[in-house]
């Protein structure tokens, strides 16, 4: 199994590691049994993600996908961030080994959960509307 140069760059020097104390939204996905947990913190101002941080328990691919996806949504509107697909993350990383593709799905889910959490705290949308807008599984 071999990682692309871009993946190596990101796990060697991950971007946006940490937490946001007064986060507008937090999304946590995965579970320790599978060996992957991603926690995403977003700071939203005027519908724009002005800051994003992450904490991840997982393999090199999990750390790299967390890192690059935070870069990809920073400065974007919530709608733009919700459009980010796991395949976009994989492409930006120059590909992932097949057994690691689930890490990119986790990154997409973490972003969606964090935005859903923001909408819940904002209180303008119903749970049904949030689920639809953020395409949540549950």
């Amino acid at each position: 199994m071999e990682y692309s140069q871009k993946v190596i760059e990101h796990y060697t020097n991950p971007q946006n590691v940490g937490k946001i104390e007064d986060a507008s939204g937090i999304g946590e996905v995965g579970n320790p049994v599978c060996g992957d947990i991603m926690k995403m913190f977003i700071k939203v101002e005027n519908n724009i993600i002005v800051d994003v941080k992450f904490k991840t328990f997982g393999c090199g691919a999990a750390i790299a996908t967390s890192s690059i996806s935070t870069e990809m949504i920073k400065g974007k509107t919530l709608e733009e961030a919700l459009k980010l697909k796991n395949t976009d993350v994989v492409n930006s990383l120059g590909g992932l080994p097949p057994v690691k593709l689930h890490c990119s799905v986790l990154a997409e889910e973490a972003i969606h959960e964090a935005i859903a959490d923001y909408y819940r705290k904002e209180g303008k949308l119903t749970e049904e509307e949030i689920k639809q807008k953020c395409s949540l599984k549950k």
């Binding site: 937490k19 946590e28 947990i37 328990f57």
Partner: peptide, 8 residues
């Protein structure tokens, strides 16, 4: 560990 949500 600093990066890990489990540690936090």
């Amino acid at each position: 560990r600093e990066m890990s949500p489990l540690w936090e």
